Simulated assay, not measured.
Amino acid sequence: MLAVAAAQLGYRTHVYAPETGPANDVSGTYTRGGYYDAGELAKFARAVDVITYEFENIAVAPIEGVALMAPIHPSPRSLAVAQDRAEEKAFVEALGGRPAPWRRVDNRAALDEAIAAIGCPAILKTATLGYDGKGQARIASPADADAAWEAIAGAPAVLEGFVTFDHEFSILLVRGADGAIASYPPPHNEHRDGILARSSVPAPAPVAAQWTEAAALAGRVAEALDHVGVLTLEFFATADGPVFNEMAPRVHNSGHWTIEGAVTSQFENHIRAICGLPLGDTGLTGTRVVMENLIGEDAAGWDAILGERDAHLHLYGKHEARPGRKMGHVTRVTR
Rank of each mutant, 00 (worst) to 15 (best):
H227T: 14
G241D: 07
G241T: 08
A239M: 09
S200I: 11
S199N: 05
L233V: 11
P202E: 05
L225Y: 00
P242K: 03
P206R: 07
R198L: 11
P242N: 10
A222I: 01
V201W: 00
F235A: 09
V228S: 08
P206A: 10
A216F: 04
T238Y: 00
A239W: 01
V228D: 08
D240W: 00
A224D: 13
F236E: 08
P204F: 01
D226L: 02
A214L: 05
P204E: 10
V201Y: 01
V243W: 00
T238G: 12
S199W: 04
G229A: 10
G241Q: 07
A209D: 11
A214D: 03
L217P: 04
L231V: 05
S199L: 05
W211T: 15
W211I: 00
A215G: 07
F244A: 04
A239Q: 14
V207T: 04
F236Y: 12
F235S: 05
R220L: 12
A215Q: 13
E234R: 09
A239P: 06
Q210H: 11
G219Y: 10
A203R: 02
A205E: 14
F244R: 07
L231H: 06
V201E: 03
E223C: 07
V207L: 03
S200L: 15
V243N: 00
D226W: 00
A205S: 06
A237C: 04
A215I: 03
A208S: 12
G219H: 11
L225S: 10
Q210R: 07
T232V: 08
V201S: 08
V201G: 02
V230K: 03
D226R: 12
P202V: 11
E213A: 15
L233M: 15
P204D: 07
R198Y: 01
T232L: 00
L217A: 10
G241K: 05
F235Q: 12
A205D: 12
A239I: 05
A208G: 09
S199M: 06
A218E: 04
L233A: 13
G229P: 03
F244S: 02
A237T: 03
T238Q: 13
F235R: 10
A215R: 10
G241M: 04
A216P: 04
E223R: 15
Q210E: 14
F244L: 14
T212I: 02
A218T: 15
V221P: 01
T232E: 09
P202R: 04
A222S: 14
A216V: 12
P204M: 09
E213H: 13
G229I: 08
E223D: 15
A203F: 02
A237H: 04
V243P: 00
V221E: 03
P202I: 12
F235D: 07
V221G: 03
P202T: 13
A218R: 06
A224L: 04
S199V: 07
D240F: 01
S199C: 08
A224E: 13
P202F: 01
F244C: 10
L231N: 08
E213Q: 15
H227G: 10
E213R: 12
P242W: 06
